[in-house]
Structure formats: structure tokens, C-alpha cells
Design a protein around this nucleic acid. Sequence first.
DNA 1: TGTCTTTTGTCAAGCATTCTTCATAAGTAG
DNA 2: CTACTTATGAAGAATGCTTGACAAAAGACA
Lengths: 407, 407
Amino acid sequence: MWFTEGMLTHAGQSLGAPHAGGLFQLLRDGLPRTRAELVTMTGLSRPTVAQRIDQLLELGLIAPVGDAVSTGGRPSSQFAFNPTARVVVAADFGASHARAAVTDLGGTMLAAHAEPRSIADGPEAALAWLTDTALRLLDDAGHVPTDVAGIGIGVPGPVEFSTGRPINPPIMPGWDRFDIPAAIHQTFDAPVLVDNDVNIMALGERTVAWADEDDLIFIKVATGIGAGVISGGSLRRGAQGAAGDIGHIALARASDVPCPCGNRGCIEAIASGKAVAHSLTRDGIAAETPSDVIALVKSGNVTAVQAVRQAGRDLGEVLTACVSLMNPAVIVIGGTMAQAAEHLVAGVREVVYARSIPLSTEHLTIAPSRAASDAAILGAAQLAIDAALSPERIAAALGLGVAVLSA
Amino acid sequence: MWFTEGMLTHAGQSLGAPHAGGLFQLLRDGLPRTRAELVTMTGLSRPTVAQRIDQLLELGLIAPVGDAVSTGGRPSSQFAFNPTARVVVAADFGASHARAAVTDLGGTMLAAHAEPRSIADGPEAALAWLTDTALRLLDDAGHVPTDVAGIGIGVPGPVEFSTGRPINPPIMPGWDRFDIPAAIHQTFDAPVLVDNDVNIMALGERTVAWADEDDLIFIKVATGIGAGVISGGSLRRGAQGAAGDIGHIALARASDVPCPCGNRGCIEAIASGKAVAHSLTRDGIAAETPSDVIALVKSGNVTAVQAVRQAGRDLGEVLTACVSLMNPAVIVIGGTMAQAAEHLVAGVREVVYARSIPLSTEHLTIAPSRAASDAAILGAAQLAIDAALSPERIAAALGLGVAVLSA
DNA sequence: TGTCTTTTGTCAAGCATTCTTCATAAGTAG
DNA sequence: CTACTTATGAAGAATGCTTGACAAAAGACA
């Protein structure tokens, strides 16, 4: 008599109720709610909900937002997530650029700065720049260092996420196994999350445009090609943090094209922005960088447009395999080359919809990035926000207040 | 002063402690533990641990296993998971076979039965057979229907896991959107879990041989080709439950080979057991089914061996893409054709290790299935066991006893 | 304006869960 | 056999949550 289906619904008291941080998690969507709504949503009693609300108000994490319309009696007051309670620091390091931003807990940018910087200058210089810039941006945004609830950092290489250390990054000399969180902790006393740049772009894109989708693959096409995989609602990093490294998947059409990785036929050697630029140069059209290709496409150069579309088709060949394996709901194309998104995406769609099995493509959306150049920095911010507002951390913040009283 | 790192460790009382089912989850690995060990592992106090132990003993979920060696004082008694407390029913339906088994909560098979059956006979006939067979096997194993804690079922087609309904299955006429759990509930009052056969094979293989790995891809090579993807410790089913359907990924070498799916160049059209059999037939060697190919390989037919090895290479091309995207720790090759595993795996390794990036392959294991023909049925059992022993369900079983007293 | 409705705030009492403390049991080492 | 060590069990105390009740607030409707 102890395992029948109905029992789960009868679980008494605290068992069925979400744990201490649960009420706040419900409010994180930003919608205002009344106390009564929260009582029914959480299953907690009125006094408990009232007490939690008081605590959260005191912490500033929620704020009253006017009254609801009366349904015949006293109008109920409403409360909503208050993203301005604290801030996070977000950083995005590229091969030749660096961005930093301060956002509130809703991911809204309060201050930002970007400048050309070589990642090859090493971690000490880069992280010193980051802390200096962050302190300045904090000041610009009218905040102090203790307002920082978390720091999210994206770097252009594989990262051991649990420790925040880059692992054998190919284009980050001096960064191998460098303890980034430890360096940041000398300035900021807040959780530091470090991840691959493509992963944070996937996170940023999802937050901005696809919050309801749990299965999303973000493709960055710039100098190289990489992917960020969100499956089951979370970033998948794989056994060594190398998931999404799709740049060196082989493509038949490119079988005679050498790639710097040592192999031949890599997708990156034929469909990346760099590869397209080179192929245009061979055709007598001067193009050095992905940006040059974009400029040509925007100026209406037919050869460039055709080259980008073909890159899209080539990419589509690889993405067909990704779709078959992961069955995502959305594929987002981002990175520099997504500035010519209409042509790139058209090529991808052409191949993916023709080749994949119907069940996988029936509800598959292939779209250019909406977060565009902000994807990375917003994703880094989101990484920090999710850590700062995790149920565990909120529960600790709430629980300690009580524990202090009792100690 | 409310977000500093240290706070999480100071969380008082119930906050830091695992929820009600936590203690039992620690014991599920089967190792015996003393009360004192559980106190330190869970962070709960001695009386609480003692009470939980008493409850679990009463439910039969754990059992005392002798005393530990004394360290100078009274020897402590030890307790371990008792897999014999209850049983689960596992079923594996193939295109032309059906298996059913009764296992204990440790996944040990107590009784099993297999017979040729066409899935095309429809769900009513198949599920009637299953319930009949399950009741008989239960009897054989000395158990009664109320001992059944869960039922796990694998079917050869895509399934909406949350509802247990097949979705547009290509080779299961009459099964589309059939409510399998509802049918089973007429006989058994226990949770019914239904999943794709390749998914449960992945689960079975992981349970049997790779329990420590959180990122595993299982490849089934039989009449067709499919994959089960375990990432981050859980099966990934994708947006429509179609994840792992890799049979129709395109391969350059096969670009002129038509596939029943309507496209050309599908991996399944060149590397599946059926495809290899056909190619051997074209070479004048009579082979109809994957089993025929296996027989030829085992008899030392060189052409057959070469064909299987080439199929492995072709499969390796596709798996290279999978490795790049997901960065698994293990790739397991199973299915009928894995009976010629040494040749198939050799071909896969040849290509994957040559083509993939070092970081992904450095710690990548490619191995034949160890669970072999039991993978599916053991995976189905594991699916049911995981559901039956989930923290939520254990908490309910433990918590309700208390709730009843207070009601 | 007065009454009704609905929401909110607050208090007291009861209960469940867990922790702390103390007493007892069951071994080992000399 | 005694002293010591460790495990076990039971009673008391504290905490947090729920239930229930009641009064106050604020608008709707007659």
C-alpha cells in the first residue's frame, strides 16, 4: 500500500511544497502576482507567504507594483521581481576584442564598454582590464562593488566549467588552466562563472528570444564555426567541455580543402567567414575578414551573396546531422556572418528541410540571431544571474536571516 | 551582507539537508553503510538518521547486513539497499520479437520470456500479451501483482515520453498515439514508462557497464541504425522525442544509394545490417538479414568481414559529427551487428580517432555493448526502477506514513 | 451614505520535524 | 574483571509551518 499513483498528490506539508527559494523562483518571470495567487501556486499557507514576501521585500528582490483591479472587494496588492536590487558583471573575451558590461538582475544593460584587445596578451592583463573596467562601469551605473551578485565571463576556447579554468585553448596562449575565478575574487566577492563564448551566446540568445524552448542549438559563424547546445533546458558541455566544437566536422564537398587543424574537409575550412573571404579572394574579389564579406554582401556583390548562400548550404549539411542527433526546437545562426543572415539562413534551410526526417523538422525553426552582437555579453550576464538567483542561494539568503535570529 | 560565498555552508536546519528521500538515494549504490556514516554524509542528526533507517527497514527498502568491524568499541550495524523488496516489469518490443522480464529493484532478472511477435499486430494484442506474460513471470518469480513497483516498456519508434504514446511510428501500424500506460493500468497499478527501444538500450548499457559516465551515446546497428543519447546523466529526447534518429544522416560515399525514406545517401542505406546484407548479395554471397551477415562473419568469410569493417568506417564518419557536437565520454556499439563487434568497432575507431579533435577523443572510449542482447530489457527495467525509487516517490512513501498519523 | 464583499494583517494554538542531551547497551583492551 | 570506547535509544527543547479565527482596510453596489 505504499506506491500507488495517488500518493504523490497527497504528500503532506513541506514535501509537496517547493523548498525555501521556490516562491521567489515563481516570481522571476517578472509578472506581478498577488499574495493569494502565490498561496495557490506554492501550496504554502497565507502567513508563510506573507512572511516570505516581507523577507523578499526587505532584501529588495521583489517590489510592490500597484494594486490589482478589484473583483468586488478590497483590491489585492501585487508584487513582482525587482531586477534593480543588485547587478552582475558580464564579460566577453574574443580573439581580438573584449567587452564588459554591468546589467541588472533582469539582464538589462546599465553600462557597457568594448574595445579591441588581443586575448594573447594573457590572463593577468585581461582580467586586470576586466576588474578595472567593471569598477568603472559600476560607478557609471551608480552602483558599488558590493552590489555585484555575480560575474559571468565568456572566453574563446574550451573551459572546465566546474572550476572556471580554460583547458588547452588553441588561441589563448598563457590561459591554459588559469584559475580565472580566483583572480576575480581578489576584487569581487561574488560567484564567478566562466564558459566558452559560444555557450554563453546560446544562453544569451535563448534568454532574449527563445525563453520557452528547452532544446536550442546556437551556431556561431565568424572566423571559425562553433555551436552551443542547450538540451533539456540546460547547456550541455559534454565530458570534457568540448561539446559544440563542430568546426572540424568533415564535409564531402570540401574533401580536398586543407584545414589548419591538420585534417582535410572541415566545415570551417569551407563555410566559415574566413574561408568565404579566401574563396572570394581567389575569385578576384578582395576580402580578408568575415567583415569584408559582410560589406560585399551588403553592397550587393552577387558573387559574395552566392558564396555566403553556398556556405549556408554547406553548414546545412552538418546541421542536418545535428538535427537528427539532438532534435532541437530551434537552430539560431549567429556570429559575424549572421549579419548576412538572410542568405546564410536561406542556404541552411534549403538543405536541412530537404534532408532531415519530417518528425524533426516539422516544428523546427531556423532563424538568425535576434540578440545579434549582444548575445555573448547578455549570455554571460545570464550565467551570472542564474547563479546568483539560484534556489539554493536564495534559500540561503532567506534562511540565514532566520538562522541569525535564532542563533 | 547577504550573498557572500560562505553563507551557503551555514544554511541551518532543513535548508542544507537533502530532502526526505535523500538518505535512501545515497544507499542505492548497494554499498553497506553505518548510521554514523550516513550522519556525516547527509548532515542530518543521529536521531533523524535512525528514524529514517527504521522507516526504510519497515518498508523493506533496506536491510541490515551484519556488523562493521569494531574500531575499539561497540561495532556499528550496517545497512544496505535491499533490491528484493519489490520488482519491476520490463518489456522490449521489436519489429518482429517481444521480450518481457521481471527484475528486482537492483535490475537483476528473476524471470524472462522472449518470443517472435510482429509489432504490426497492433497495441491491444501486444499489450494483452505483455500483461499475461508479466503475470505468469511474476508467478514464476514468486511474486504477486502488488509487488510491481513500475513497468518499463521499449518500442521500436518515437515516443512522447511524458504521455507514453508512440508518435507517428513508421513500423508500428495501429500504435500511433495509443495510450500505452492507460492500457497497462487496467492490470497493474504502478507507474508505466514508455520509451524508444534505442533509448532504453542506452540506459541499459549505461547501468550495466558505464554507471560512472554521464555522457554516453549508444548506437544500435541492426536492420536500421539509431542512437540513444545520454548527456549530463540523463537521456536526451529532444523537442519531439526524435533525438538519436541518426539513420538518415547523409554520407558522401553513399550519395547514389537510394533509401526507403525517399532521400539518397542515408547512412542506414549503406551501413545497416540490411544494407550490408544486400551489398553482399550483390557480390554473389547470399545474405538476407543482419543475422545472415553475422553468420558469414563468424564463419570467416573475408568479403563479409570487409563489408562490416567498411560499414564501421561509414558509421564512424557520422559518429565523428556526433562526437564533435556532444563530446561524449563513451560510444557504445550495440544491436544485432554488434555480434561482429570487433570488425564494426575497428572501423568506427579508425575513422573517429583520425578525424575528431584531440580534446574530444583523448578520453573517448569506443566499445562494443557489454549488455549485448539484454541491453533493451535491462534498460526498460532501469527506467521503471528509476521512476519507482525516485526521490519524490520515496519521499512520498516515507512522508505519507507521517501524514496519515496527523490526518 | 451604508452595507456587502474581498483582501490583508495579525495573533494564538497545534503539530511535525529536527536537534540536543542524557542514559543505556555492547563491544574491546588491558 | 574492570575501564574505556563506541553505538544505540529515549526524552526534552527549539524551530518553522499550518490551521483557524478575527479585525481592519478598501472598493463595489444599492
